[in-house]
Every structure is written in C-alpha cells, then in structure tokens.
C-alpha cells in the first residue's frame, strides 16, 4: 500500500521515462568504489550524449572483480549490448585468486581513464624525500611500514616494485593492508605507519592542505599541476598506472565489436565525458585497439613477475 503511494509520488514528481534497455553495464564491485563510479558515469554520459537510450548498471561484487568477470564471460557470451568495467586491480586479482576466467575470455575495448600512485608521508615525518625513504628501507625494511589498500592490489604491487628497484628483498617489505582508501589515509594522517601509498586522488586535498608530504608519483613523466618528482627521477625505474577499462562480451562478430568500439570512442571524445573526467579528477588515458591489447599483455606479465617476488603468487 505504501509502495503504491510511493510510486504515485515518484511518477508524478519526476516522471521518469521508461525506455527499453540498450546497454547493460556490469560493475564488478560494490556501489561506491571506482568501478561503480566509472560504470555510473558511463551510464549518465551515454544517455546524455544519445549513444544509448537507456543504460542499466548492475553490481556484481566480489574478489577483486573476478566474480563479475567470470559471470560476464559465461552469461553474456555473444551479447553485443553488454559491457564490463574493469581495470588493473583485476589483473592482480586474477593472479592471486587463481581465477579460471581471465581477461583473455572477454573482449577488451578500450582503456578510459587511469590514475597514478602517490607515495606520501605525514607532514611531521623526518623523511623529506624519496631518497630518505629508500635509505630507511635499505637500512631496515621491517621498520618502514607502508599503509595502503588490500594485499595484492595496485598499492601493494607498487611497493614491491619499489623495493625491487631499490635492491631490497620484496618479501621483506612491511606492508599493512587496509580495507579502503579512507581507512589507510586515516592511518597515515595519524602517523600509525611510516609511509602511505595510494592513488593520487586519495591524497590530493591533504597534500594541498599541507598535512601530508608528497614524495613521488609513479607516472613516467611529471604530472601537470602536481609538484612532485617521478620515481624515475628518484632513481627507481618504476611506473605504475591504475587504469580502468571497458570490455565487451566474448564471442562477438567483427561488426558487433566495431560497433561497440565506435560507441565507446564517441563516448570518450564527447564533451560530457570530458566534463566527468574533470569533475572527478580522473586522467584521460583513452587507448583502444591493438595499442591497448599490447599494453594489457605487458601489464599482465609484469604483474605476474612482481606478485611472485612478493610471495603472493606461487
């Protein structure tokens, strides 16, 4: 009874149109995370730009996205209207979880956006530069605790790569995994850990307010508007990008694949998407076709190597 009442309020006040669904986007994560936000932004922009009449977002959370990936590969096979959001975290999760379904079992379309990792210390810390941090790490790896996201995730991988590049045994790093960016950030601000590592966006407002000191970013070149050296400048040959992509279902014909690619390209070039990137602070790293596939293959093999070094993958 109450729901009829609710329905009439809604129908009256908002008069939402009901189209037949065109695209269904699977976000392989819970609401609120990066993939969910990417999926919901895609939904908004696709409708806004008239690429698709009605877009549905479906959350299939679990295990670093591998559950959504597996479900997508089996249930959407040959469906040209289904899309999956994913990213670099999935590459690591497929390896650590021994997932039987990999990115080879779907049709990657394009990389849309990405974020670089940032290494920070609390403002009061004695560590002033990346060189100081590396020196401390070399002296006693156990005494340098790193706060970041889940074990085996992008943050953990980046720390492993840094240790390796600095000539420190990656199995000796003292990495403290936190469940979400917020919790790790609190631990860093409260000086519970020596250093913090996460996507730059997580730290941006703290860095600007002067409560965190930014030591380095993991991009290949300096980022515009960010006053910090790259790891390469600090003498560590490490580049890590936490990218997000969109993939289509397996088993598509070449025409269907081309149609999806065209829609995504139109989306990535649209004013609406550029606006979203700006308000969310996401980098535009659009990369499609063979160039993207090549990059993907490179990332997969590099990640496998470092996860073996840390001891997370046998």
């Amino acid at each position: 009874m109450k729901h009829f009442f609710l329905a009439s309020i809604l129908a009256g006040a908002l008069a939402l149109p009901a189209y037949a669904a065109d695209y269904t986007i699977i976000a392989p994560a819970n609401p609120g995370g990066g993939w969910d936000q990417t999926a919901r932004s895609l939904q908004t922009v696709m409708q806004q730009e008239g690429i698709s009449g009605n877009v549905q977002v479906q959350n299939v959370p679990g295990a670093g996205g591998t559950i959504g990936l597996a479900q997508f590969a089996s249930q959407q096979k040959g469906n040209p209207n289904a899309l999956l959001v994913g990213g670099y975290v999935m590459v690591g999760a497929i390896l650590t979880n021994n997932s039987p379904v990999t990115l080879k079992d779907v049709t990657p379309i394009a990389r849309l956006t990405g974020e670089y990792e940032a290494i920070v210390v609390p403002a009061a810390s004695e560590i002033k530069t990346m060189a100081d941090l590396v020196e401390a790490l070399k002296k006693d790896p156990g005494a340098v605790s790193w706060g970041g996201g889940s074990a085996g995730g992008t943050d953990h991988i980046a720390v492993g790569l840094i240790a390796k590049a600095a000539g420190v045994d990656p199995t000796k790093i003292n990495y403290i995994a936190y469940s979400g960016g917020g919790e790790a950030l609190a631990a860093i601000l409260g000086s519970q850990v020596t250093a913090g590592i996460s996507g730059y966006g997580e730290f941006e407002s703290q860095v600007k307010a002067g409560t965190l000191r930014l030591l380095a970013v993991t991009s290949a070149e300096r980022l515009p508007g960010i006053d910090a050296p790259t790891l390469k400048e600090s003498g560590l040959d490490v580049v890590v990008e936490n990218w997000r992509m969109v993939a289509a279902a397996p088993g598509l014909t070449d025409e269907q694949k081309a149609a999806v690619s065209a829609d995504i390209e139109k989306l990535a070039k649209s004013a609406g998407w550029q606006e979203v990137l700006k308000t969310k602070g996401w980098q535009d790293t659009y990369l499609a076709g063979d160039a993207f596939n090549e990059q993907l293959a490179k990332d997969v093999s590099a990640t496998e190597a470092v996860l073996k070094d840390i001891g997370l993958v046998k």
């Binding site: 819970n30 609401p31 609120g32 995370g33 936000q37 979400g180 960016g181 917020g182 919790e183 950030l185 609190a186 601000l189 941006e204 407002s205 703290q206 600007k208 307010a209 409560t211 308000t279 969310k280």
Partner: peptide, 28 residues
C-alpha cells in the same frame, strides 16, 4: 573535515558532493 570516506555510504556521498563542485577535505 578530512575528505575521508569511512564507509561505503560515505564513499558514495563523496561522489554525490562532487556534483556540486564540493571537494571534501581539510580546506572545505
């Protein structure tokens, strides 16, 4: 005060604030 989303709800709210050009954080 810190721009720290401490729960899933807060993480979504953070996304919500951004549509008003609000960037939660120490300077907000």
């Amino acid at each position: 005060t810190l721009g720290l989303p401490t729960s899933a709800t807060a993480a979504i709210m953070l996304a919500g604030f951004q549509q008003y050009g609000l960037q939660p954080g120490p300077l907000l």
